[in-house]
Design a binder for these strands. Sequence first.
RNA 1: GCAGUGAGGGACGUCUGAUCGCAGCAGUAGCUGAGGAAAGUCCGGGCACCACAGGGCAUAGUGCCAGUUAACGACUGGGCGCGUAAGGCGACGGCAAGUGCAACAGAAAGGAAACCGUUAUAGGUAUCAUCUAUAAGUUAUAGAUGAUACCUAUAAUAAGGGUGAAACGGUGUGGUAAGAGCACACCAGUACCGCUGGUAACAGGGGUAGCUAGGUAAACCCCACUUGGUGCAAGGUCCGAACGUCUGGGUUGACCCGACCUUAAGGCAAAGAAGACCGCUCGAGCCUCCUGGCGACAGGAGGCCCAGAUAGAUGAUCAGAACCCGCAAGGGUACAGAACCCGGCUUAUAGCCCUCCUGCAGCG
Length: 119
Amino acid sequence: MLLGSLKGDYAFRRLQKGQAGYSKYLSVRWRGDQEGRIRVGIIVTKKLGKAVKRNLVRRRLLEALRALLREVNFMQGALFKKMPSFSLLIIARPEAVQATYKELEQSLRHALIRAKLIQ
RNA sequence: GCAGUGAGGGACGUCUGAUCGCAGCAGUAGCUGAGGAAAGUCCGGGCACCACAGGGCAUAGUGCCAGUUAACGACUGGGCGCGUAAGGCGACGGCAAGUGCAACAGAAAGGAAACCGUUAUAGGUAUCAUCUAUAAGUUAUAGAUGAUACCUAUAAUAAGGGUGAAACGGUGUGGUAAGAGCACACCAGUACCGCUGGUAACAGGGGUAGCUAGGUAAACCCCACUUGGUGCAAGGUCCGAACGUCUGGGUUGACCCGACCUUAAGGCAAAGAAGACCGCUCGAGCCUCCUGGCGACAGGAGGCCCAGAUAGAUGAUCAGAACCCGCAAGGGUACAGAACCCGGCUUAUAGCCCUCCUGCAGCG
């Protein structure tokens, strides 16, 4: 499954009105579109630390998302012509630095369910 | 041998395998995939575009000498200063052009003057000595001269004033009213002129002169040299949205001009929004050896290809090894992530290795 990345100020601003979900280590927002693919943006602010720590959190989140997308079913609003088609924004909280990969993955699953993106 | 919160250096800074995932390359199998600082962005280049006849000013920087280098404010070697020395540190041209600045203490912080002090002269006062006069009898008073002390004025002086980071050369002799480079000898320093060694900075030594010139230039400044700006989001190619214009088509109209409409009709011009591609990684490249050089480094031979992402690829899980901590279970393995590319500098850094040093213990 191809993952596009969100680019530009407009794409991020559009998601301010999206469906939101929260969990311990992160929050998510998503919105359906007609692109026919999944586009994702991950925000890891400087509150989390320097480049090494921020990179680690971002890569773990991206890895966890890929793992989740392989096994889950999407809600109806996220589909376009029976293909998943939406923009997703993941915002890491400062506590995410201390989390292990497993904790991040669970946290992401929890948040996506609460945002009504997956079942 | 052990220890060290001692110094210096390291082209040391975890390793191996499996599975899943990501990026690049490849027809496939597959191969490759962060650092010594990738960091800070403090200097210097390459490269790119813009500006530019030449010169000057300004701004900013550099500042002992020689070398290395593409270049540098870097590096190497040397000199000088500080230090007993090993060694370390030094923006290390000029304050005997000008201007400015200096807490506290101190008489005074730059004008060599004031003050204290010293000395001479004059005046006054006191005391003493001598002489004279008067009165009286072994004394008193007055005057004169001299000496000493104190006070005042004028002149001379910078020897002395002990404070300070720093006080207008030092020591001695002569000299003088007292003193003073005032004169002389030696020493230190300065300027100039030769000599010797060195490419040079500079070092050694000689002569002459004058008599001394405080500190501070990462204070202004003076002198010498260097210095255009912006940074790969540079810049370029493809492609080409909206806006323009012309032709066409339509409406109005008897027709023409005109006006309005039309964008899934076409042309021209321009546009830099979005996107794709180039720039982009083979380079002042890396490794080994040889030659030259004290060295920085240079030359040669052979071998090698070693990230190129673009909101940004390195992650997850498991197994094992190494080192450290702990009796054990177990825990820990730093600083830190490429963003056009190189050369430096600076800062961060657990542990490991090498050389030297120190301590303790043992042996000879």
